[in-house]
């Protein structure tokens, strides 16, 4: 039986991992910032953000600023812990593989 912990399936997806990596580096970011940086389509990004929100990995705040709709995303404490755990497991795996 393997000693390796299984990688969090919620983070082990290209777009969700990209989003969490971006959000861990900033305080909060708008939907369009995430879309531009990941190069994802709005629909796909929206679906993946919803999954991260349901897991309480991110907070999403929808608001209006000067009559413009604005969707702000922010990583939660649980999201940071999940990300750190994911990176730790990833490193363990890669270290043994070398």
């Amino acid at each position: 039986m393997s000693d390796f912990k299984e990688l969090d399936p919620l983070l082990h997806s290209q777009l969700r991992l990209a989003v969490i990596s971006l959000l861990v580096s900033v305080k909060e970011a708008e939907f369009t910032f995430l879309r531009d940086k990941t190069g994802a389509t709005a629909g796909n990004l929206s679906a993946q953000l919803q999954k991260l929100k349901e897991a309480n990995y991110i907070d999403i705040v929808k608001q209006f600023k000067d009559n413009y709709p604005q969707t702000m995303c922010k990583i939660t404490k649980k999201g940071v812990e999940a990300f750190e755990e994911y990176v730790r497991n990833l490193r363990e795996y890669l270290d043994v593989k070398k």
């Binding site: 990688l7 900033v26 990176v87 890669l94």
Partner: peptide, 16 residues
């Protein structure tokens, strides 16, 4: 696993 690590590094760089 290595692609995941590369993606994390790339996104952190892009955020900055």
């Amino acid at each position: 696993q290595s692609e995941s690590l590369q993606l994390i590094e790339k996104m952190i760089t892009r955020a900055r």
